[in-house]
Design a protein around this nucleic acid. Sequence first.
DNA 1: GATACGTGGAC
DNA 2: TGTCCAAGTAT
Length: 344
Amino acid sequence: MDATAKRLLDWYDAHARDLPWRSPPGAPPPEPYRVWLSEVMLQQTTVAAVGPYFAKFLARWPTVMDLAVADDAEVMAAWAGLGYYARARNLLACARAVAARGGVFPDSEAALRELPGLGAYTAAAVAAIAFGERAAVVDANVERVAARLLALDEPLPAARSAIRAEVMRLTPAERPGDFAQAMMDLGSTVCTVRNPRCLLCPLAEDCEGRAAGPERFPVKPAKKARPARRGRAFWIERDGAVWLVRRAGKGMLGGMRALPDDGWAARGDGAGEPPLAGSWQAGGVVRHGFTHFDLELQLMLYSGSDWDSLPANTGEWWRLDRLEEAGLPTLFAKAARLALADKD
DNA sequence: GATACGTGGAC
DNA sequence: TGTCCAAGTAT
């Protein structure tokens, strides 16, 4: 085994984080279902945010077969607030694909890579952690650790092939899953984006980037400014219930329950019409930052009583005293909070 | 390779 | 307070 890998595993044996989806260092791996579920939730999402969602999903759908027969609406609602909702849609598609093969996950990186929602990272992570395959697990933590070890001047994303080659070279045949998790723990607790704790690092003696200033690595391209968009959302209330719709299956907040809106997501100009003609009044503004634009959402309150003109089968009346269960994404949860606060 | 796709925490 | 960013994937 490579000496660097050995140092890292020794460090992991002493310092591994205790996480709900993880086995202790050297212990038999968790069930593939748990590894897969946690890895999908952890895509671009912090450990702290995932914790309660992982517990909720595992309690409600203890096995992949349970998840495969779940109602889409329940799964989407359970995912609400976690973000990147394509993950929830792919989670269901993947569970059903696994159920179709008897509820048994494929055990190789290449076969896992064919499942919905499993890209290069997740396929390698599940293969290494759940099945002990020697696969190159490269996430943002590992990229940072590797770029610093090599003092890699080439900027991302072009540097990824060199990083992947280095990670593959370092990954041991013994305990590849622990090695992957050790690299990620190191990146998140020691080799951090800002103020890395080199004095605590088990790989300091191997690190080319330490002397040059580890924070220089990895080199990243400049960020683009986020444009601003405006839109309107429509609050229609009747007898202690609000009118909710289901968003289209793709695109922004796809597949999620929502307030009706004017199409800001698709057009960006907020040109769409309210679902009811008649009297509307402004009810405040919600500001919400998405990955690639900032939204200023004008909440519009309906003050008429022509509810029967709502297009049938395009939405549902949802009781206000159970609004938490609707599974609104954060943007619309904020808007609902505003609408209900205005009534006081 | 570039872009769309959420959210909340850290500093 | 605004900026950066996180266990990425699909197209």
